[in-house]
Simulated assay, not measured.
Amino acid sequence: MKYKNEVKLQFPSHSENEAFSRAAVAAFAVQLDPTVEELTEIKTAISEAVSNAIIHAYDEAEDGLVTVEVKYTEDRRLIMIVSDDGVGIGDIEKAKEPLYTSKGGEERSGMGFTVMESFTDRLEITSKPGEGTKVTMMKQLDSLL
């Protein structure tokens, strides 16, 4: 597939970088002139994906890298990919269940994948234990009027 434009960011898995990634993806998506609602959905979806990578991919004692790729096509399809080289997910279907969290005892809602799925048109998760996780989200923006 040919993309009209794309960008790739990589940063340490520090919680403060979630806000940076959200702002960077929003700034990139603005090129497509999204509605306020579409932009809010994009920011929320990327925020959830990056937060998941920061919180779940790496042991608190280690820093890892989170990679965010954002691309768009001529027909205003936005593709957002968040990946890490962390612990991976053993059971993706279980992880996608609302209210499930692998961080029991902490204040986690377990709604990350549910939120991503509800604010995008397609969500794909690939992961292998010990090898990391890749979350791909696609959002088709409305046609310009």
Rank of each mutant, 00 (worst) to 15 (best):
F11A: 14
F11I: 15
P12L: 09
P12V: 04
P12A: 07
S13N: 10
S13T: 13
E16L: 06
E16H: 14
N17Y: 12
N17P: 12
E18Y: 13
A19N: 09
F20L: 15
F20H: 01
S21M: 13
S21W: 01
S21N: 07
R22S: 12
A23S: 10
A23V: 12
V25S: 11
A27T: 04
A29K: 04
V30W: 10
D33P: 01
T35R: 01
E37R: 06
E37L: 15
E37S: 15
L39G: 02
T40C: 04
E41I: 05
I42T: 07
K43S: 06
K43E: 08
T44C: 11
I46A: 01
I46V: 15
E48W: 00
E48Q: 13
E48A: 03
E48T: 01
A49F: 04
V50Y: 09
V50M: 13
N52V: 05
A53H: 05
A53F: 06
A53S: 13
I54M: 06
A57S: 15
A57P: 02
Y58P: 03
Y58A: 00
Y58N: 06
D59C: 04
E60C: 04
E60R: 08
A61P: 08
D63S: 14
L65H: 06
V66R: 00
T67K: 02
T67R: 08
T67D: 05
V68Y: 00
V68Q: 03
V68C: 00
V70H: 02
K71N: 06
Y72Q: 02
T73F: 03
E74A: 13
D75E: 13
R76E: 12
R77H: 02
R77N: 03
L78T: 04
I79T: 14
I79F: 10
I79Y: 05
M80Q: 00
I81K: 14
S83F: 04
D84F: 02
G86P: 08
G88Q: 09
I89E: 02
G90A: 11
D91S: 00
I92M: 05
I92N: 03
E93I: 02
E93W: 02
E93M: 09
K94T: 14
K94A: 06
K96L: 06
K96E: 00
E97S: 14
E97F: 03
P98L: 09
Y100P: 14
T101E: 08
K103M: 14
K103A: 14
G104K: 14
G104N: 14
G104L: 15
G105W: 06
E106F: 15
E107L: 11
E107H: 08
E107S: 03
E107G: 01
R108E: 11
S109V: 10
S109K: 15
G110L: 00
M111T: 06
G112P: 08
G112Y: 07
F113T: 00
F113N: 08
T114C: 08
V115Y: 04
V115F: 08
M116P: 05
M116C: 11
S118F: 14
S118E: 15
F119C: 13
T120P: 09
D121A: 04
E124D: 13
E124V: 11
E124I: 10
I125S: 07
T126P: 00
S127D: 06
S127M: 05
